[in-house]
Design a protein around this nucleic acid. Structure first.
Lengths: 159, 159
DNA sequence: GGCAGTGACTGCGCAGGGCAGTGACTGCCT
DNA sequence: AGGCAGTCACTGCCCTGCGCAGTCACTGCC
């Protein structure tokens, strides 16, 4: 049987949460092996992606308070994942910089997944890659937007 | 400029962790609105996907101990997300069943993401959908496998 | 019919994160 | 120039989710 377009779409929609769940779990496991938290690893990804170096902004992207982020940074410095540096332009602020120290270790742990991703992507043609890339980047934006615009309507909690 | 195959592939590989991170954060936010934990929601997904109904197996898939899962189940019952039922075949075991009670609420909160996913997938042709679906399902398997086979080699922790 | 193995469940401790308050610093607005 | 609200990172205090290890019930193998 050849699945039609609609079937493929619904199947993909169902596979998505499962994929995200298992991948997030893999991240957590990698973090565990490195002796750090999943949050620290998530932050490290943001730093390496060059998304931001501002504590407040990073805290927002990580979905946590600035207070919690302060202690997250403490841990990340302790674990040699990142470091604080003063912001010359504004003496209240500071910039967060990723450290290269443990990148080799990280790469080693990520290796099996990286290999899988590499192999899979190599099999796709340009149109397929474009679709996947669009889905990922626009999905990221949609997720961030949706997170901020979540309705408060949920008084219906049974308690 | 038209990006070539390799550029597309590396871009996708970079976009992946970001996507997973933001999506996981969205899940956590949805959970927060429902007054439950992200773990409870993750478990609920597994239950609805029909992945398993065994506490031990679910605990494994969620990356936690059976003891912690017992209390997770307690909370899920309290929050009307799932219920325990005895296993007629083995009186030590029990089966976990998802409850429909709060599905409407869940669907409402997921709506913006579901809409995005629906729209995006509708634009893709069959080949693109196939690629995406393969990537998701095989990626799930790869993540689960990789999680279990993580090397212990990480003595290099600076401590 | 005994016994190791497996299932779910409980005390205890720990750690990550929220909340609210603090002090340093900025830049706007008279 | 100078005061003042706003912003930034940081600190108790608390709450909660989870791991660990031990417990009891039950199974099936020998």
């Amino acid at each position: 049987m050849v699945p039609d377009q609609r079937e493929l779409a619904t199947a993909a929609a169902l596979a998505l949460p499962r994929f995200v769940g298992s991948t997030a779990l893999f991240h957590a496991a990698v973090a565990g092996r490195m002796g750090v938290t999943a949050t620290e690893l998530h932050c490290l990804h943001l730093l390496h992606g060059g998304v931001s170096d501002s504590p407040t902004e990073l805290a927002r992207l990580l979905g946590m308070s600035t207070g919690a982020f302060t202690r997250l940074l403490d841990r990340m410095e302790q674990h040699r994942l990142a470091e604080r540096a003063p912001d010359p332009a504004d003496r209240r602020r500071l910039v967060v910089r990723p450290l290269p120290d443990r990148m080799a270790e990280l790469a080693e742990l990520y290796a099996p997944m990286a290999r899988f991703v590499g192999e899979r992507l190599a099999r796709f043609d340009r149109r397929q890659l474009t679709a996947l890339l669009e889905f990922l980047t626009d999905g990221t934006a949609a997720a961030e937007r949706s997170t901020e615009q979540l309705p408060d309507v949920t008084q219906a909690i049974t308690r």
